[in-house]
Simulated assay, not measured.
Amino acid sequence: MVYSTCSMNPVENEAVVAEVLRRCGESVELVDVSSELPQLVRRPGLKKWKVQDKNVWLASYKDVPTFRRAGINPSMFPSGKSYMDASDNSHEASCGKMPDICSNGNCEKRSELSEDPLVPTDVSEEEVTTLPLERCMRIVPHDQNTGAFFIAVFQKLSSLPGNSKNHFSY
């Protein structure tokens, strides 16, 4: 299967490929086709990227303000992790607020912790994926006077996980 876009946005490209690989497990592999069409100038897929929300660049899902988490998914980031664990859930249950808006156990409104409520108070390091996204191809216009293209080639190795009624919806 070939997945291709004319976008250079990693959320539309590498993040989609990464989510397919995560959901399909070892039943699908990303094929390295860099030896095909040797005259085609290409760049490898990205292993790290940031997500833009409004006027803020986010390096990790844990940087997403609580009030924006309905519109920004963990799968948009390289690791695809939500960073919610049992301690976060128990904290939320005890104080009624997400832990990223609390400071030293004293829960406050995000706007009281930062001048700009869109800027996370605890900015993390940029995520890097362990998936082989370098096997994807990025064709950029200025390398050889073409349009922009992103290409990923998948090969199905075995039955997909889950029952036959499960399917992806796009």
Rank of each mutant, 00 (worst) to 15 (best):
L37H: 12
S124L: 02
N106Y: 14
E112C: 11
V64Q: 07
F168K: 04
D116I: 05
V153Y: 06
D143G: 13
P10N: 02
N9Y: 07
C102F: 08
V17W: 02
I139A: 14
D116P: 04
D122V: 11
D143L: 13
S94Q: 14
S103N: 13
M1Q: 06
A70F: 09
L131P: 01
S114D: 09
E19T: 06
F67H: 11
P117M: 10
S164H: 08
T146W: 13
L131A: 05
F149I: 13
P78W: 06
L30T: 04
N73D: 13
G25W: 02
S159R: 13
I151G: 05
G162E: 09
L157N: 06
L21V: 00
F168D: 02
E12A: 10
A70L: 07
P78F: 05
N166T: 08
S90Q: 14
L131T: 08
S159F: 12
G80D: 01
S27H: 00
P161R: 09
V123R: 09
P117H: 04
F67L: 14
M137F: 04
V41I: 10
G25R: 00
E112K: 08
C6V: 03
V128T: 13
G71S: 12
V153D: 04
R23E: 00
G105D: 12
N73K: 15
S159N: 14
L131M: 11
P38C: 02
W49R: 00
V31M: 07
C6D: 02
N106I: 09
R135T: 11
F77M: 01
E115P: 14
P78Y: 08
K109N: 11
G147T: 14
T146S: 12
P65C: 06
V123W: 10
L21Y: 00
E127K: 03
V51I: 01
N163T: 14
N145L: 15
L58M: 04
S27I: 00
R42E: 03
I72H: 02
P38F: 04
V119F: 09
L133A: 07
P161E: 10
S158E: 08
R42I: 09
N163D: 12
L160V: 05
F150V: 02
D63V: 03
R22D: 07
G147H: 10
G105Q: 10
E134S: 12
